[in-house]
Amino acid sequence: MTMTTDHAAEHAAGQAGGLTRDRLHSLLAAVCDRAGLASGDAELIKFTNNAVFRLRRAPVVVRIAGSSAARSRVPTVVRVARWLADHDFPAVRLLPGCEQPLQVEGHLVTLWKHVPEVGPRPGGGELAILLRRLHRLPDPPVDLPEWAPMAEVRQRLAEPEDLSAGDHAFLLDECDEVEERLAALDYALPAGVIHGDVFMGNVIAGPRGPVLCDFDSTGTGPREWDLAPVAVGRLRMDYPADEHTSLAEGYGFDVTRWRGFPVLRRLRELKLVTSVLPVLRSNPGIRSQWEHRMRSFKARDQTVRWQPYR
């Protein structure tokens, strides 16, 4: 589906680093031409921090970094994917035989083997197995970034689309407060490699079992953070099932019972609110849900349920 935009909005989006859907399809055609692939009938399956296309004429997924924050993480994504492949870890794999990442018209792009989803969706118990295995992997890349969640949030706040001055100031103040509270935390689990954005949407029901995807936030940091997104999802998101209980049981640690969890919850919600700021105008379909999240986040109302961005 393609959305039309007027020239002023197109120019403003380009100035802010955003990508409209029309521009995305043009860019996809250039990427596929470079890689020797056909872009016809490609399906846009995600458009938030990254734009993700599934090609119809080849088992390939194309991932286009949609902001400067996303672009800065692409080299790490490639290194992590190769490290996981070296250890035969169940994760999505880069498409072999082509340069990774590709640089096309000023954008960084990665190409991946498509993993067909078969059978029932994995649950928290399956995710616990993947996380335990990930956290035990040896020989991680020596240049993995240290966990720095506030730097990522502030980078998004540096390039927002259609964000009011009042909301911008509020979110910057929130960054300062959350960062101060994070610095005072005493973690219970040993630090190490973390995925950085572990929720059920980043687990695929592959033909050979569940696999992890999306390594934009992978680095070294507190393992509690890898357990927080599913816990926050149970409390905040309008999901049909509780995956947190089986994840906590399978992993052997319930992050919601740890005294630092309220800080991680606020951080996770801050990230869920700010994640789409660089494409807030470029992708107007997410505006209503973003406004819904922002209202309840500002009011510190933890009873309001959020829905996934569409």
Rank of each mutant, 00 (worst) to 15 (best):
K298W: 03
V92D: 07
E243L: 12
E159S: 06
H168W: 13
L157K: 03
V109T: 12
E177P: 00
L111D: 03
A13E: 04
M237Q: 11
D162K: 00
G206Y: 01
N202D: 07
K298S: 01
G209C: 02
T245C: 07
E146L: 14
E269T: 12
A184V: 11
W306L: 02
A231L: 03
V52G: 05
V198D: 04
T48A: 13
Y187C: 10
Q103D: 14
A169M: 13
L280V: 01
H7V: 14
H135I: 10
L94E: 11
H11K: 10
D176N: 13
G206T: 08
W147C: 14
L163Y: 01
P96Y: 02
R295Y: 01
G196C: 13
L182A: 07
G209F: 02
W83I: 09
S217W: 12
E99Q: 15
L134V: 06
D33W: 00
K271G: 10
P229Y: 00
G209L: 07
F53M: 11
L84F: 06
L134C: 03
Y239N: 09
T110L: 06
D214K: 04
A29W: 00
M200W: 00
D33Q: 15
M150C: 02
G196S: 14
N50C: 09
D33S: 15
H11T: 14
G119L: 10
A30C: 05
T48F: 01
R265S: 15
V31S: 05
E243Q: 15
V78T: 07
V193N: 09
A241K: 13
V78S: 09
G97K: 03
D139W: 02
N49R: 12
W306D: 13
S217Y: 12
L137P: 08
W112R: 06
R21I: 10
A165K: 08
G97N: 06
R305N: 04
G66N: 05
E99T: 13
D22C: 14
M150R: 06
V193M: 08
M150F: 08
G40V: 11
A248D: 07
V77T: 10
E117V: 12
A299H: 12
P262G: 03
E174M: 02
C98Y: 01
P90Y: 05
G233S: 11
P75G: 05
H107P: 00
G66F: 02
C32D: 07
C213D: 01
A13Y: 00
I204E: 05
A299T: 08
T303W: 04
L108E: 13
D254H: 05
T218C: 15
D254A: 12
R54Y: 05
D186S: 15
I204Y: 05
D139I: 01
L44A: 10
L19H: 01
L264P: 05
G260A: 08
S164M: 09
W225M: 13
S72I: 02
F297M: 03
V255K: 06
F170E: 09
G36P: 08
P141Y: 10
L189M: 14
